[in-house]
Nucleic acid binder design. Structure first.
Length: 543
RNA sequence: CGGGGUGUAGCGCAGUCUGGCUAGCGCACCUGGUUUGGGACCAGGGGGUCGAAGGUUCGAAUCCUUUCACCCCGACCA
């Protein structure tokens, strides 16, 4: 796949440069354009192929160009590089605060889970067994061929956690004795392993980083409320920080978390109009508490099983961020999650200018660093690497730094700066003090406009359907050669049953969720089975 | 697990069919120079024993055998 993509990318590069050349010649011959060369350069994109040309290849290229992550020697596992990890760290900071504000505490549980623990909840086993990594030995000894061979076989194999319900449940059982111990609301930040065959950086890897919240409650109502609250936290995080609009809703039976009574999720539309499940919150009922004996003495002196929930959000969100905002020039970051907000590029042409220009930049940096954005000082840095002007600029464009500032002798003379916003194509000269004074406003505006742009994409590509025929046409690629960009979100009446799932299969479409609705829908007809129903769902292709 | 494909420099590839100069090319990297407000140019340079093992041969990246790894499609999973 990688080989194919890179081959395709190479071919595209060749054909792109031919196209650019033609464009250049065209422009050369057109007297209307005075700035021929700059127009020619504008036709070039930072990333090739473009989203339109080949979306999956574009995604890979953005990750690579922005230096976010790369494949590792370990099959299916990625290396997250500093710029990518910086985004994740910011996500963690925001979410961690939100969790604590809603009454949760962090703790840490083991990476390994005894096999017997996983076997306790039947549906849970079925859901995860095939993708578990198993540790069977604990010691290495020199082998006959000079290599090392595992020696000590474990009495009971250990599973590398695919999720921690079982081990955390086991501990909960010990910690909970009375209704006074409830609710118990715990979160952990950790890595998990799910042995996937297909891998895409951030979106699907064998090992990934996430947080998993686990709570136990006295009553069903309380646990249900927790499930909804945490979904709201995720939705708020997605919309306010990631600038990514999401649909909140309930999963259908077939998409439900193994072992859960109800799974809620937030679903976002990527720029290829496929859905990405971006965070899930599960109501586990008493399934896990019965399997693991999480019981307590209730107010009446009797014994009750606790009601539990779990909820998680992973580094997949970094992938969501990339696919929601980035363009054909590379990564675009919403300011509230950007590891750096402003890069200052000194423009030095002659050596004797160096001192003056650097002083100007240093003082500008100090001034910017005093500005408070979103409760913290603005993150600003100077790029004084000896790259050439254009190359340096493109470097930061591709990495998605929200604001680029160029400062050279000409700007110093007019006490101004030359500023480019990552979400807008043009750079402009602006008075230095005005730039600093309006910086927060600019970042806020950027955050807002990214959200609006993403919302517009989703609105424009969400349609309601009355018949399976129209529904089916919506999801049939118009262009077989480029099947990636088509379709979107489809809303319709449906009945959650095996017949529906069967009809969706050939279209490669899945029910994303049953969106929450303030009011009950009037009775309608399931477009798949023809049965009467009041349930409306959102359907789409998904990651 | 079934079908197909690929292993040659950090990355991407040519060379293999038809064995033969010192194993090439692009990008990246290093040095020097000229440049520098939108992705520079010129010159020079470093780096590979051709996935691994065995065989055929005067001679193997190239032919034969075995083996390993990876990739794609399907299945499976989300």
């Amino acid at each position: 796949m990688v080989q194919l993509i890179s081959r395709a990318a190479d071919e595209l590069t060749t054909c792109l440069s031919t196209r650019s050349l033609n464009l250049y010649n065209m422009v050369q011959n057109d007297s209307h354009f005075t700035k021929k060369r700059s127009l020619y350069l504008m036709a070039k994109t930072g990333i090739s192929p473009t989203r339109q040309e080949d979306y999956p290849a574009w995604y890979q290229q953005v990750v690579r160009a922005a230096d976010l992550a790369e494949n590792s020697p370990v099959r299916g596992c990625m290396v997250i590089k500093p710029w990518g990890y910086g985004i994740w760290e910011n996500m963690q900071k925001v979410l961690d605060k939100m969790f604590k504000d809603t009454g949760h505490e962090n703790a840490y549980f083991p990476l390994f889970i005894p096999k017997s623990f996983l076997e306790k909840e039947a549906e849970h086993v079925e859901g995860f067994a095939k993708e578990c990594a198993v540790v069977t030995h604990h010691r290495l000894e020199p082998g006959p061929d000079g290599g090392l061979v595992p020696a000590g076989e474990l009495e009971e194999p250990l599973i590398v956690r695919p999720t921690s319900e079982t081990i955390i449940g086991h501990m909960f059982a010990k910690w909970i004795g009375s209704y006074r111990d409830l609710p118990l609301k715990i979160n952990q930040w950790c890595n998990v392993v799910r042995w996937e065959m297909r891998v895409r950086l951030f979106l699907r890897t064998a090992e990934f980083l996430w947080q998993e919240g686990h709570t136990a409650h006295e009553t069903k109502e309380e646990a249900l409320e927790e499930t909804r609250t945490m979904l709201d936290v995720y939705a708020q995080f997605a919309e306010e920080y990631m600038a990514m609009p999401v649909v909140r809703g309930e999963k259908t039976e077939s998409e439900r978390f193994p072992g859960a009574d109800m799974t809620l999720s937030i679903e976002a539309m990527m720029q290829d109009r496929k859905a990405l499940q971006s965070g899930t919150s599960h109501f586990l009922g008493q399934n896990f508490s019965k399997a693991q004996e999480i019981k307590f003495q209730n107010k009446d002196g009797g014994e009750s099983f606790a009601w539990t929930t779990s909820w998680g959000l992973s580094t997949r969100m970094v992938g969501a961020l990339i696919m929601t905002h980035s363009d054909d020039d590379g990564l675009v970051l919403p300011p509230r999650l950007a590891p750096k907000h402003v890069v200052i590029c000194p423009v030095i042409r002659k050596d004797e200018e160096r001192v003056t220009v650097m002083e100007y930049c240093e003082s500008l940096k100090a001034e910017i660093a005093e500005v408070i954005y979103d409760g913290k000082p603005v993150e600003v840095f100077i790029d004084d690497s000896d790259k050439r002007g254009g190359e340096k600029k493109w470097y930061h464009i591709k990495r998605g730094v929200p604001i680029r500032v160029e400062a050279g002798p000409r700007d110093i003379q007019s006490n101004s700066v030359f500023v480019g916003r990552r979400d807008q194509p043009k750079s402009t000269g602006i008075d230095r003090s005005e730039f600093v004074a309006t910086l927060v406003e600019t970042l806020d505006d950027m955050q807002k406009s990214l959200y609006e742009r993403a919302l517009k994409l989703r609105t424009d590509n969400t349609h309601s359907f009355e018949s399976f025929e129209d529904f089916s046409a919506f999801f049939t690629p118009k262009n077989a050669k480029n099947p990636e960009l088509h379709g979107g979100f489809a809303e319709c009446y449906f009945v959650d049953c095996p017949e529906t799932d069967e009809m969706l299969k050939p279209l490669k479409v899945t029910p994303r969720c049953i969106p929450f609705s303030e009011t009950e829908h009037p009775e309608g007809t399931c477009i798949f089975t023809g049965k009467p129903t009041r349930v409306r769902g959102v359907f789409s292709k998904s990651y």
